[in-house]
Design a protein around this nucleic acid. Structure first.
Lengths: 160, 160
DNA sequence: ACTCGGTCGTTGACGTGTCACCGGTATGGC
DNA sequence: GCCATACCGGTGACACGTCAACGACCGAGT
């Protein structure tokens, strides 16, 4: 019971360090976004997706898919952002069930204000510390792990 | 505006992939814990810290420090876990302000049940995909990034 | 003994993410 | 046209994390 059962202690230590790194970086980004533009990381993700979208608007479902979020999460987040004037809802004429989420001028401003600091922070805390080998390794690992999980999820009964 | 301003598109893609990897792995772990033992990842972290502690008990502050959580988060989490019988609170005789958090038999059982699947999942989705170079790279990156952030936080006025 | 700054843990309010479920709408087969 | 089915997005309840503020307590200096 001195360590977690059946796992290489070095691997366990690495897992802990990765967890710490992740929360530290997230924290730095959140704080920077809050300070620069008064928005959260989730706000930023939505604003980014809308900014790169055709006509600065997306259907709620497309937004969910582009971010890998659940639809209900999108709905809650968009409602809160609409309350603050960062986005607007609009009815979809071709599908009465659908909803467009549209970037407002205020939302575009907030994104423009925020993105510079966001990139700067990311560059400062993460990318500047990586050499080419690290980049290749990270990218390969991320892709392999995600692909592995997608393959597992696709199976009818993945475990047990 | 086609990509986020001033950042190498490859770096941006890597960041996205890292984010996806993180949430996928977290998701797999959460689901496994829920299925095996009916506990959350936060529950597991607390149970693990208590399991390796002397006498299966820790002061709330020590728990917070060992996990890098805020004290209030510990307090909320412990209250919820105490409601479910996974831990108990006990007064500290040497410091009347203090509180011991004590692992119960039910908590120890839940941790024993959960840890095997947790390790198995982690091994399956992550560690099994890593070679020695990846491990070294990840470990070095994690440590460098965290150290960098600690140094930044220590400064009186890091940015602007 | 007293006071005062610091520490311990808790609480309430708030924003957030997930889950189960719902009403309204589209769509393909009849 | 009609109907079963699937889909779209929203809602409410709940668990979670953060923040600011608090009461209780410790300990050092006087």
């Amino acid at each position: 019971m001195s360590e977690v059962m059946g796992l290489d202690p070095a691997d366990w230590a690495m897992w802990r360090e990765m967890t710490t790194m992740r929360s530290s970086v997230d924290r730095a980004l959140e704080q920077r976004l809050q300070r620069d533009a008064g928005i959260s990381g989730a706000d930023f993700d939505i604003l980014h997706s809308l900014s790169v979208a055709e006509g600065n608007r997306l259907r709620a479902g497309a937004l969910a898919e582009s971010l890998g979020w659940e639809k209900s999460r999108i709905s809650h987040q968009v409602r809160r952002m609409a309350d603050r004037g960062l986005v607007e809802r609009a009815d979809c004429p071709t599908d009465l069930r659908g909803t467009w989420v549209v970037l407002t001028a205020a939302g575009a401003d907030a994104f423009a204000t925020a993105s510079c600091g966001y990139v700067e922070t990311l560059q400062g805390v993460l990318f500047s510390k990586l050499d080419e080998d690290d980049r290749a390794s990270l990218r390969r690992v991320a892709r392999t792990v995600v692909d592995g999980l997608l393959a597992t999820d696709a199976q009818p009964s993945p475990t047990r």
